[in-house]
Design a protein around this nucleic acid. Structure first.
Lengths: 340, 340
DNA sequence: AAAAGTTGTGAAAACGATTTCACAAAGAGC
DNA sequence: GCTCTTTGTGAAATCGTTTTCACAACTTTT
């Protein structure tokens, strides 16, 4: 019976299988140079004892933890939760475990969490965006832990990146609205402090408008947290202050959904009086009325591809260091030609 | 400078601080019996070398990993992502790291993941629901790893539970709809196989109806995965087969949102012709038109309280072993008295 | 002033695996 | 039949901490 008191150790398996600990280790690690008969005895003994290796001992001796860390802003936003879901799923296929930490968009907290991850011996770290404390990256580099940026495709000296170009995405939104004939714009951006993605989208949007002769000063930009009521509040400000925009680009579907709700409550027709474009293409984009036109962020792909990079051998990695994924515009019902 | 090649080890700190490794260890672990002057030298030396302890070695010797595992069905559903977010936030306040695994509602896969977690040396495991392979629980018990059930409050011999009574929640939905005068019911349940929560809600709903004289045979129950289009599809079946229900209870807000979308497309008035009740009170419940009446699941509280249990000392735990949280009915616009 | 605690410290063992090295036995090449 | 690999195995060292034990130097009690 395996009602052992202290859990069985490798040496117990060795004893039962009548061989040395070294041999047991070899069997457990798939070393081919073990006689089949012995191998079988070991496997049987391990099963009988309900043996589970001690990961700490293994990690200590072999210097391989098969542990990966991820530091994301929050899991409360589907765009990150989905990425992590895909990341974890892929990693666990190869028996790599994922430690996850949320920073709440705070890069100082992120540093502390990175430190803890280093202490735990993670072999790679997945980060979101490219805004980080220099100390964070320095620490990772000093400990030879490689890291992957996600949600950004910005080039960098070290580390890998799998994501998309936020600036280009912002330009795409602008281009689309310009092509619909709009000339009066507003934007509800995410909080841009310490957030390169939110800032990139805003800048891309404004740059493209400017390139088409729209005076930057005429486009009001307000910032809100990624919450429904912030979207509502921000939309109210946009519609009540100065000249009303006929097209509004939101840095997130959540903000856009809030904006639509505000319009609904205030009796402003969408897209009749104002067109609204979101960002992310979350499930909620299909639930608003009208359904939301938005830019699709490949969250699941990012997670999977980041995992592939992490699992790749050093030589394979060279090809994978930078991966820009496409952003697709999903046209639904919340946008229309101006003054239709 | 700390451009050390191999990372500094505890013994290097000891050398630099001119003391023994034992003393360094004492300082690092806050042992009070260390002279202040020496303590200071150690702290300074550690900082200078950029010393980060080796968690594996520490764990191996001390038999404490400060690691917790969670196995949840998916992160792609806000109800779980939010719980994990709260769980992680609370754990990390105490420098406890969380390894997360998704099982995709597959209890065999869950077993494999539990095994890996045991190997990693997690000190506690957070599970969802009460349906698990006996082998999974046996393994955890044998290794003296305590576990916490979430999303359920069912009593069990061992382990703790923080959650709510799904059966009672189902009865609450039934009661509410009965009180509105409805007499013809339908239900869109989640997949009930290996899912005690989905089954519990369904059973509670049916039991309460029966108690009020509704023949079980007259209420059609269809099952769908927690996806918008399954909600749509299920609602269609409900409305096209046999006698139409005037009230439908959905096992999840996602299913309910899909159901509402179907009605919208099919020209069925909600709540005019059919009342719809959801479950979870996700953010999307405010986005449907009409807004969704639903039962609020305290996802965030569950995560936080589960963490509190895990962080509690064995003596404190006794009081915390079973915690039933309240389920609130949130009345919005998708329900109305029958034949209003 | 002797006995009985405190404090502060270091030497060495221990945690449970993997890895290196050595070596025997068996098969291959001449 | 004799060397040269190849194959299979075990003894012992090792990974980087924490912990136990011993002990010296002071305090406090009696």
């Amino acid at each position: 019976m395996d009602i052992e008191d202290g859990s069985a150790k490798l040496i117990d398996v060795a004893r039962l299988a009548n061989c040395s600990p070294a041999t047991v280790s070899r069997v457990l690690n798939g070393n081919p140079n073990v006689n089949e008969i012995v191998r079988d005895r070991v496997v049987r003994a391990a099963r009988e004892l309900g043996y589970v290796p001690n990961g700490s001992a293994r990690a200590l001796r072999s210097t391989r933890t098969r542990l990966v860390g991820a530091i994301i802003p929050t899991l409360d936003h589907a765009i990150y939760a989905t990425m992590v879901d895909a990341l974890q799923a892929r990693l666990s296929e190869k028996d790599v475990s994922l430690i996850i930490n949320t920073s709440g968009y705070d890069i100082d907290l992120e540093y502390e969490q990175a430190r803890l991850l280093v202490e735990r011996g993670v072999e790679s770290v997945v980060l979101v965006g490219s805004t980080h404390l220099p100390a964070t990256l320095a620490m990772l580099e000093q400990k030879r832990i490689d890291y992957v940026y996600t949600y950004t495709s910005k080039a960098m000296e070290s580390g890998a990146a799998v994501g998309f170009d936020n600036e280009k995405a912002g330009r795409t939104a602008a281009r689309y609205l310009l092509d619909l004939g709009h000339a009066q714009f507003g934007m509800i951006a995410g909080i841009t402090q310490d957030n390169d993605r939110a800032a990139g989208r805003r800048d891309g949007f404004l740059n493209e408008l400017e390139r088409s002769g729209i005076d930057r000063a005429t486009v009001t930009v307000v910032e809100g947290a990624y919450r429904l009521d912030d979207g509502r509040r921000c939309m109210q400000r946009l519609m009540e202050e100065g000249t009303r925009p006929t097209a509004v680009f939101c840095g997130s579907d959540i903000l856009a959904a809030g904006a639509i709700k505000y319009c609904h409550a205030a009796g402003i027709a969408v897209p009749g009086e104002v067109s609204i474009v979101g960002f992310d293409n979350l499930e909620i984009a299909e639930l608003t009325s009208p359904e939301l036109t938005t830019l699709e962020v490949p969250a699941r792909d990012m997670g999977r591809i980041a995992a592939d990079y992490i699992l790749a051998s050093p030589s394979q990695r060279l090809h994978l260091r930078q991966r820009e994924l496409a952003i697709r515009l999903i046209v639904r019902e919340s946008t229309a030609p101006v003054g239709r």
